[in-house]
């Protein structure tokens, strides 16, 4: 990947000399070493992950896998296979070919902009001194992260709540964080 120099716009409103801004950007000492990301793309990493077979198939089936196969970074709060299992008949309904749009809407609610690791979430929670922290989703809502003890929980705007259920997958262009519940209300139905 060829990196071109980033273009920067500095505001006088910030009242910072240019040199200071540049210094702030360039000399910041990493507080922690970033996790070594796999060279694989996020789509590829998810595709080979045990326990994420449903979401991997859903990404392919809806055509969204290509989004996670490129340069732009995303974080997927990836419902694990058990999470879809909790939906009962609605899971089959979502997987039905004619309901690809519904599955896409579900997936979109789990996508965060950028590259977010569990460590990043923990750091934000620590900085917030125990208060919840929020991240935008690509569905336009926010997901709220909280931690109680060792349990990291994500809560969607509609009240759906999930716990991080496994180790995150770090890829070249994003992160997949397994969660144990689908973060969008999908009422159980018996008739797909």
């Amino acid at each position: 990947m060829i990196r071109r120099p980033p273009a920067i716009i500095v505001g006088a409103l910030a009242l910072l000399p240019l040199a200071a801004c540049n210094k702030a950007a360039d000399s910041a000492t990493p507080a922690a070493t970033a996790a070594q990301a796999s060279a694989a793309t996020l789509a590829s990493a998810i595709g080979g992950a045990p326990g994420l077979t449903t979401v991997a198939a859903a990404l392919k089936g809806t055509g969204l896998a290509t989004v996670f196969d490129g340069t732009a970074p995303y974080t997927l709060l990836a419902p694990d296979d058990d999470a879809f299992g909790k939906l009962g008949g609605s899971a089959a309904m979502l997987k039905a070919p004619e309901n690809g749009a519904a599955m896409a809407a579900v997936l979109k609610a789990h996508v965060l902009p950028g590259y977010v690791t569990v460590a990043d979430i923990n750091a934000a929670l620590k900085a917030a001194q125990g208060k919840p922290v929020r991240m935008k989703t690509m569905a336009g809502d926010e997901v709220t992260f909280t931690r109680i003890g060792e349990v990291l929980t994500a809560t969607a705007a509609d009240g759906s709540s999930a716990k991080v259920s496994g180790s995150a997958l770090t890829a070249s262009n994003g992160v997949a964080i397994p969660i144990d519940t689908v973060l969008k209300k999908v009422p159980k139905t018996s008739t797909p």
Binding site: L112, G114, I121, R134, M135, K136, F145, T170
Partner: peptide, 10 residues
């Protein structure tokens, strides 16, 4: 609101 977590590309 909604950008509470560090999310810069790797």
């Amino acid at each position: 609101q909604g950008y509470d977590v560090y999310n810069v590309p790797t």
